[in-house]
Amino acid sequence: QVTPQEKEAIERLKALGFPEGLVIQAYFACEKNENLAANFLLQQN
Score class of each variant (00 low, 15 high):
residue 1 Q to F: 07
residue 1 Q to R: 06
residue 2 V to K: 08
residue 3 T to Q: 08
residue 3 T to K: 08
residue 3 T to I: 11
residue 3 T to N: 10
residue 4 P to Q: 14
residue 4 P to E: 14
residue 4 P to R: 10
residue 4 P to F: 12
residue 5 Q to E: 12
residue 5 Q to T: 11
residue 6 E to L: 03
residue 6 E to W: 04
residue 6 E to D: 03
residue 6 E to R: 04
residue 7 K to R: 14
residue 7 K to Y: 15
residue 8 E to T: 10
residue 8 E to G: 13
residue 8 E to W: 04
residue 8 E to A: 11
residue 9 A to M: 15
residue 9 A to N: 09
residue 9 A to T: 15
residue 9 A to L: 01
residue 9 A to R: 05
residue 9 A to V: 09
residue 10 I to H: 01
residue 11 E to N: 15
residue 11 E to G: 07
residue 11 E to P: 00
residue 11 E to C: 07
residue 11 E to W: 03
residue 12 R to E: 02
residue 12 R to K: 10
residue 13 L to Y: 00
residue 13 L to Q: 00
residue 13 L to G: 02
residue 18 F to S: 05
residue 18 F to N: 05
residue 18 F to V: 06
residue 18 F to C: 07
residue 18 F to R: 05
residue 18 F to L: 06
residue 19 P to W: 01
residue 19 P to Q: 07
residue 19 P to M: 05
residue 19 P to R: 07
residue 19 P to N: 13
residue 20 E to R: 06
residue 20 E to S: 08
residue 21 G to W: 06
residue 21 G to Q: 12
residue 22 L to W: 08
residue 22 L to A: 14
residue 23 V to N: 01
residue 24 I to N: 14
residue 24 I to L: 13
residue 24 I to H: 14
residue 24 I to W: 08
residue 26 A to Q: 08
residue 26 A to M: 05
residue 26 A to K: 05
residue 26 A to D: 04
residue 26 A to P: 03
residue 27 Y to F: 06
residue 28 F to T: 13
residue 28 F to L: 13
residue 28 F to K: 11
residue 28 F to V: 10
residue 28 F to G: 13
residue 29 A to G: 08
residue 29 A to T: 05
residue 29 A to V: 04
residue 30 C to V: 04
residue 31 E to P: 00
residue 31 E to H: 10
residue 31 E to F: 04
residue 31 E to A: 06
residue 31 E to T: 04
residue 31 E to R: 07
residue 32 K to E: 04
residue 32 K to T: 03
residue 32 K to F: 03
residue 32 K to C: 05
residue 33 N to L: 02
residue 33 N to K: 06
residue 33 N to P: 00
residue 34 E to G: 02
residue 34 E to M: 04
residue 34 E to A: 04
residue 35 N to Q: 12
residue 35 N to W: 05
residue 36 L to V: 10
residue 36 L to H: 09
residue 36 L to T: 12
residue 36 L to R: 14
residue 37 A to N: 00
residue 38 A to N: 08
residue 38 A to K: 14
residue 39 N to G: 09
residue 39 N to I: 06
residue 40 F to L: 09
residue 40 F to H: 11
residue 40 F to S: 10
residue 40 F to A: 13
residue 41 L to F: 01
residue 41 L to R: 00
residue 41 L to W: 00
residue 42 L to T: 09
residue 42 L to N: 12
residue 42 L to P: 02
residue 42 L to M: 13
residue 43 Q to V: 07
residue 44 Q to C: 04
residue 45 N to L: 04
residue 45 N to S: 08
residue 45 N to T: 12
residue 45 N to G: 11
